[in-house]
Design a protein around this nucleic acid. Structure first.
Length: 629
RNA sequence: GGGGCGGUAGCUCAAUUGGUUAGAGUACCGGACUGUCGAUCCGGUGGUUGCGGGUUCGAGUCCCGUCCGCCUCGCCA
């Protein structure tokens, strides 16, 4: 621990005498015994024995026990100490000695104590709404957010903020060593209302015009490549005005990166090195070489583009076997586009998950009935279930329908007595999504997901499709973003593809890549389009007329015309990285001053009303009419 | 926008089927105490049960509305 004692403080002598600390509260050890030290910090707890008072003094660096002893100090000092309460801020001077009452193994400083000879109360506290105590049961999150400055006094929260700092430090060091320049990009930005809903800011100088806040610095970092910056990094704030989740805030941070003259192998290798450095620096964990898994395989085996490979429960296609049954649910599903390509999103399929024997016992009727209800949110009709009993026969659920194909199902799924099978019969898209989500829920319900710190399963998801149909509008939308390039060998197919040929468009693969860890996307990126004709074709496919594309992105299209190097990049979700490396599932725990689900800051009261004068100056008029109480 | 859970003392929680003056721990205040370390012991203050309406002899409890927090679906190029 670094000593924070200042040196050469020229104004010290002109101020009223204040005890200046010589050590932090986490610093003193046996070696300091006998020396006179000054500490400052918050009263973490007090134990008043009358003539003997113990104070645990806390700062960011630790806790040190102070002792006030009637036999060795002035009565006035003891009276002062007698009035100290939790969260008072004090400074004190005294001699370090070995603890008379024996060591406290819970504290790093637990073998010593400071016998106080001088005390200065720097700030007396009102009775705080709660104490920043990691051992006590936490107050409601609402209370923590309202008094965030107190919540952030908790060692756990300070530890998270320290880890967050460590992560950004490692990022800056690593990318600096590899030739990246950190460049800041605008927060007040051109509104580009594709994708996420954006926050907007009115212009005072240009009446009626608005800035958007960036959903990411995507276009600027590409322009920096056109500018010849070669390698860019930024730890940047991004804004998306969509409803938050446990792992999502509308204002969040990315470690944003872009590289010139590279293909996807170069980018992935560079980022893999970063992940390796990061896990080693923060957790001491060695990350082995990261395997790649094509999007198609991810979907086939795990039903999701970010597979959690920490447990089995993989998905199998049993369409061919299901077709031989008389089960109407199977037959109806399989009747959809039976002649389409195998992975066509609208083609009917039957897929299954085998839940192996010891765990399968926990799958009660109540639980599986719940699954049938739950999957309706993904558009599925239900979850057919069947069990293989000890005698090797199917029972319960859809047993009578699948009994005729028992041998084939047992062989295809590798079933053992006691196993349970969960089915999904629907279109490829719905069945895959359903089992992909169900697989994760079952794993959680059965308790087979390794606890935090036990497994770090990385993989690169590669070869994702360029486009997919929007569920509502039916229009093509970019899977990643409209600047993602087709994979090198797909360029011709892309240029030739007929926009009305669903199967052809769906099968075009991009040069995108996502870094996935334990089922969580921690980074996503792609090689970008650097040819104006290819970029124009993408815009056309997305339904942007040349005029619209020019209006929104003319600067990019122009830039691409004036000599753009091949380039590609990636962005890490910083908040999620911190969550994973700290073992928390609440994104608000890794943000110093987070917002609630409706974007409110409970501490400052943002957002708040502004004066009519402010609005007039910005040429803005609110249509909101407050409800009468 | 939809679904779910929650809101009782500063904080964490309890309160039987709708029934006496809404309790406990902790914090806080006062007192005792020289080796504690989540100190202990004694005493005390502290409540618009989120807010508004309704049903009822009687509402923390039931009904309607509303606000806030969390989880979630949609949404998140």
């Amino acid at each position: 621990m670094r000593c924070l004692a200042p040196s050469g403080d020229r104004i010290r002598h002109t101020l009223p005498a204040m005890l200046k600390r010589t050590h932090t509260c986490g610093q003193l050890r046996d070696a300091h015994v006998g020396s006179v030290v000054t500490l400052s910090g918050w009263v973490n707890s007090y134990r008043d024995h009358g003539g003997l008072i113990f104070i645990d003094l806390r700062d960011r660096f630790g806790i040190t026990q102070l002792v006030f002893d009637r036999e060795s100090i002035a009565p006035a000092l003891l009276d002062q100490a007698d009035k100290l309460r939790n969260e008072d801020v004090i400074a004190c001077t005294g001699k370090v000695r070995v603890r008379i009452g024996g060591p406290n193994p819970k504290l790093a400083t637990g073998t010593v104590e400071v016998v106080v000879e001088a005390l200065e109360v720097l700030a007396k506290t009102d009775n705080p709404p709660f104490l920043p105590d990691d051992l006590a049961s936490l107050p409601a999150e609402e209370t923590r957010l309202k008094h965030r400055y107190i919540d952030l006094r908790r060692p756990r929260m300070q530890g998270i903020l320290a880890t967050r700092h460590r992560i950004t430090k490692v990022a800056r060091d690593y990318f600096d060593e590899n030739g990246f320049l950190e460049v800041e990009t605008p927060i007040l930005y051109k509104s580009t209302p594709e994708g996420a809903r954006e926050f907007i800011v009115p212009s005072r100088h240009i009446p009626g015009s608005w800035y958007g806040l960036p959903q990411s610095p995507q276009l600027f970092k590409q322009l920096l490549m056109v500018s010849g910056l070669d390698r860019y990094m930024q730890i940047c704030r991004c804004f998306r005005d969509e409803d938050p989740r446990a792992d999502r805030q509308s204002e969040f941070s990315q470690i944003d990166l872009e590289m010139s003259f590279v293909g996807r192998e170069d980018v992935m290798a560079m980022m893999e090195g970063f992940a390796r450095r990061l896990w080693k620096a923060v957790l001491g964990v060695d990350v082995p070489p990261i395997q790649r898994m094509p999007y198609r395989e991810c979907m086939e085996r795990f039903g999701i583009d970010r597979p959690d490979t920490r447990y089995g429960l993989e998905i199998r296609d049993v369409s061919a076997i299901a077709a031989k049954t008389d089960f109407r649910v199977f037959r109806d599903a399989l009747a959809k586009h039976p002649d389409a390509k195998p992975y066509f999103s609208k083609r009917g399929v039957v897929k299954a998950i085998r839940v192996p024997a010891p765990h399968a016992e926990k799958l009660t009727r109540k639980l599986t009935d719940g699954y049938s209800e739950w999957v309706k949110t993904f558009g599925a009709g239900g979850v057919p279930v069947v069990k293989l009993n000890a005698a090797g026969a199917f029972e319960t659920g859809v047993a009578k329908f699948v009994e005729p194909v028992r041998a084939e199902l047992v062989a295809a799924l590798g079933l053992q007595p006691g196993d349970t099978v969960l089915f999904a019969a629907d279109t490829y898209a719905v069945a895959t999504k359903t089992l992909g989500e169900l697989r994760q829920k079952v794993a959680r319900d059965l308790g087979i997901v390794p606890e935090w710190g036990k497994a770090w399963n990385f993989l690169w998801m590669i070869d994702p499709p360029m486009f997919e149909r929007d569920k509502d509008s039916g229009r093509w939308v970019a899977m990643h973003h409209p600047f993602t390039a087709p994979r090198e060998d797909q360029q011709d197919a892309f240029v030739a593809a007929d926009p009305d040929d669903d199967q052809a468009i769906e099968s075009i693969v991009s040069a995108g890549y996502d870094l996935v860890m334990n089922g969580s996307e921690i980074a996503g990126g792609s090689i970008r389009i650097h040819r104006p004709d290819v970029q124009a074709k993408v815009f056309r496919l997305l339904g942007l007329s040349p005029e619209q594309a020019k209006d929104k992105f003319s600067f990019l299209l122009e830039a691409l015309r004036f000599g753009a190097p091949p380039h590609g990049g990636i962005a890490f979700g910083l908040d999620r990285l911190v969550m994973h490396l700290c073992g928390t599932e609440n994104i608000r725990d890794v943000i110093a001053f987070p917002k609630t689900q409706i974007g409110a800051d409970l501490m400052t009261g943002a957002p708040s009303l502004v004066s009519d004068e402010q609005l007039r100056e910005l040429h803005v008029k609110s249509t909101y009419v407050p409800q009468k109480p």
